[in-house]
């Protein structure tokens, strides 16, 4: 899922300063699961903003809504009346949701309440970790299901580098060395011969370097 962090309250406050009628919109999918932008978090932010408004005489009128998915037109369109009634919309969805709401309602400005950070998973209660970089050319079959692009600090295709330290990355003792994990997994599964295979330079065209990406399925197009 997409993982996100809420922006610092001062940043949110500054963004909202010029406005009065504020609509906060949460998203019921990824950011809800990672506890950043779901219904509950919308409620918490709304309470914080009401307190600030009271203390600092901002005169804000805060309304709240959370839709199933901000990356889907059919869930966004029913918000039409609420958009019209607001001076400003603040979204607690990922960058996709924020942009798509603005696309569906081009006359309105949609502000981000959160920073979209990575594609990851919940590894334990309160901890999320990155797993995929969306690089467009998956090599997980060569690396035992551990992604060197997302999980090696240098994104090496032929690791590990000389900085592996007791199984940790040279940049932090909190960070597991991806290539150390790949090696051990190959060893455990009797596939050590795989680490000897040279992975040649890849094309980054499939990644963001080829420009914004789109996917077309002619058979599904109307």
């Amino acid at each position: 899922m997409i993982i996100a962090d809420r922006k610092p309250i001062d940043d949110i406050k500054n963004m909202l300063s010029p406005y009065k009628k504020i609509l906060l919109v949460g998203c019921g999918t990824c950011v809800s699961v990672c506890m950043t932008g779901g219904e509950k978090e919308v409620g918490i932010l709304a309470s914080e903003l009401r307190i600030i408004s009271e203390l600092e005489k901002k005169g804000w009128e805060i309304s709240e809504d959370t839709i199933q998915r901000q990356c889907d037109r059919e869930y966004i369109e029913p918000l039409s009346e609420k958009f019209e009634a607001a001076d400003i919309i603040m979204s607690l969805a990922c960058g996709v949701g924020i942009q798509y709401m603005a696309e569906v309602f081009p006359r309105h400005m949609v502000l981000p309440a959160i920073n979209t950070t990575f594609y990851g998973t919940t590894v334990s209660e309160g901890e999320w970790q990155e797993r995929c970089a969306g690089c467009g050319d998956c090599v997980l079959h060569l690396t035992m299901g551990i992604c060197p692009v997302a999980r090696c600090s240098k994104g090496l295709y032929n690791g590990p580098c000389g900085g592996t330290d007791k199984g940790k990355c040279e940049i932090s003792s909190d960070l597991d060395c991806a290539w150390y994990m790949i090696y051990n997994r190959m060893k455990d599964l009797g596939k050590l011969d795989m680490i000897g295979t040279f992975i040649p330079p890849r094309s980054w065209k499939a990644s963001l370097n080829g420009g914004p990406r789109k996917r077309v399925r002619e058979d599904l197009k109307k």
Binding site: K154, G155, L156, N158, G159, F198, P200, P201, W204
Partner: peptide
């Protein structure tokens, strides 16, 4: 950082 290619490459 870049790491378009790694040292082996």
């Amino acid at each position: 950082n870049v790491y378009d290619i790694d040292s082996m490459q």
